[in-house]
Nucleic acid binder design. Structure first.
Length: 217
DNA sequence: ACCCAGGGTCATA
DNA sequence: TATGACCATGGG
């Protein structure tokens, strides 16, 4: 499995090139984006972030100070805005209470992950996206795309839970922040180019290279 | 008009 | 523990 996961990475990288994630100018912007993009296309999130910047509200303090209705209006384009406004404030309240980025960077990864998961509205994927793309920790982010692609390749059943899949990657790859960064981004990129419904896409260049038995070659 | 997107929480059985 | 409802906008 170590070899196949590595081959998948090489194939994706060769085909799509580097993705240079996360599209944000600061760690805090990554964190905000991670919450806003929950079950939402990145397009809609970008508009919300632009609104926050124009209103000069893209800081933990400002987000805490705004009332929820105002905040919800600013992020309206990202969908679920009433829910996400609360989540942003819950996250920023914690962020400020912990003393900001300098203090948080001192946390060990395990501890930081556990603390993030206690925050209302921060689940495993959002926490891991923050850990990898904002805190630069070697944590592999699993999402629906990752699961679907592995299933199409015939490498998993599809019933595995989040932690099982995360362990699959983390235990079979060297803990390299740059590789984990590109790998997850490449899986997202690839998922946009393959059929969502059909169990197998014959034209997909990956299958011939990675599982000839399945692709029929 | 229908489908879904870079999820998470909560109520129910 | 395991489903299902719910949150809601914008683009295809």
């Amino acid at each position: 499995m170590q070899q196949t996961l590595r081959q998948l990475y090489q194939q994706l990288l060769k085909h799509y090139g580097k993705q240079y994630w996360w599209p944000a100018k600061s760690p805090f912007e990554v964190m905000v984006g991670a919450i806003l993009t929950q079950n939402t296309s990145w397009r809609n999130v970008e508009m919300a972030i632009v609104n926050l910047k124009q209103a000069r509200c893209l800081s933990p303090q400002k987000i805490c100070q705004l009332n929820v209705e105002e905040l919800a209006q600013l992020i309206k384009s990202s969908g679920f805005h009433t829910v996400k406004a609360k989540r942003l404030q819950a996250y920023c309240a914690w962020y400020v209470a912990q003393g900001g980025l300098k203090k948080l960077k001192r946390f060990k990864t395990q501890r930081l992950r556990a603390e993030l998961l206690k925050i209302h509205g921060i689940g495993p994927e959002t926490a891991d996206a923050m850990l990898l793309y904002a805190f630069l920790r070697p944590v592999f982010v699993i999402d629906a795309y990752t699961k679907r692609i592995l299933q199409r390749l015939g490498w998993i059943q599809g019933m595995e839970d989040y932690e099982t899949l995360r362990a699959l990657f983390e235990q079979n790859l060297k803990p390299d922040v740059n590789v984990f960064n590109e790998y997850h981004a490449l899986l997202v990129q690839h998922a946009k180019h393959v059929c969502r419904t059909k169990p197998l896409c014959q034209q997909c260049h990956l299958y011939a290279k990675l599982c000839p038995a399945v692709s029929g070659n």
